[in-house]
Design a protein around this nucleic acid. Structure first.
Lengths: 158, 158
DNA sequence: TACTTTGTTCAGTTTGGACTGAACAAAGTA
DNA sequence: TACTTTGTTCAGTCCAAACTGAACAAAGTA
């Protein structure tokens, strides 16, 4: 039983933990990850130490199928890593050493692909359509700027 | 009727136009917009001049309902603007003068909200959880870097 | 006035993707 | 060998969001 206070500025740590996990789930859903993958990531950010596959599924109340695809997805993005623990049969997962750079690289790569895709149209435009070509190129430069800005941000983090 | 060539490096302009519109639809679907909104935007990038509401719906073969919500969504994001044309009853739409900055601002704002949300959890952590707090703050800094990089990119474009 | 042309709204349909859970294969244990 | 514990796969379910189209209100026209 935790004490209450007039404002809600002093929650129990367990409440804080659950809120954090759900928070990250929602933030992630708006981006590149599923809500479940976000919750798994939040859990591992909070814990820091390696967690067993079964514990992850159990604590988040998700099926083992979901746990499998979520951990795999996070592993692919290098946000978490799978580790073996001496004498344990279960897979363990923990936060990567530099979790965030890969995530940005991925987004930057998508911006870059869009940019190339758009410029490939521009390159095929005949001279008779100069103005249209210019507008398309301006649009392509937009994605190029994004890609560049994101790539530049990689140095700042981890 | 267009001439053919051995390679496909010389498509008809109309083919190029349709391909471009679909391309932008798909790119947009992966981001903040719906596929239809992306196609409308692609069409207006290509045309440059104001287009009638009815022509947009007709050319893209979408319902007027979809045309309405797509144009409104693009208008809200300042990617296109609604213009009146002398003696015409229909609404006309054309590319904004500076279409892209608003789009980035929007994404940057979302990163900023995430960052604040995460730091608010960190701020409530008791001293007994120093390491967890540090990991959460590192995660928050990730979103802060993104927000900063995107905001910086605004100057490069338009 | 009655009729037409317009953009919006909203109820219904459709679709894609997230999630579950049972079946499975691989590997450990007894 | 038979049994248990593991993570993955996949068929099925579910849900949220996109899209349609009919009904609508507003405004122009005759």
């Amino acid at each position: 039983m935790q004490t209450t206070s007039s404002a809600d500025n002093c929650k129990g740590v367990e409440t804080l933990r659950l809120e954090f996990i759900e928070k990250i789930g929602l933030i992630s859903k708006g981006g590149e990850l599923t809500q479940i993958a976000g919750r798994v990531f939040g859990l591992l950010v909070w814990e820091g130490v390696p967690m067993a596959f079964g514990d992850i599924a159990c604590q988040l109340k998700i099926s083992r199928g979901s746990a499998s695809s979520a951990t795999r997805s996070l592993e692919d993005r290098r946000l978490i890593k799978r580790v073996a623990i001496h004498g344990e049969r279960q897979d363990f997962f923990q936060l990567s050493d530099s979790p965030y750079s890969g995530m940005i690289e991925r987004v930057a790569a998508r911006m870059d692909a869009a940019q190339k895709d758009i410029f490939s149209t521009a390159a095929q435009m005949p001279d008779s359509h100069n103005e249209t070509k210019a507008r398309i190129e301006a649009y392509g430069r937009f994605y190029k700027s994004l890609s560049k800005a994101l790539t530049g941000a990689i140095q700042d983090i981890d």
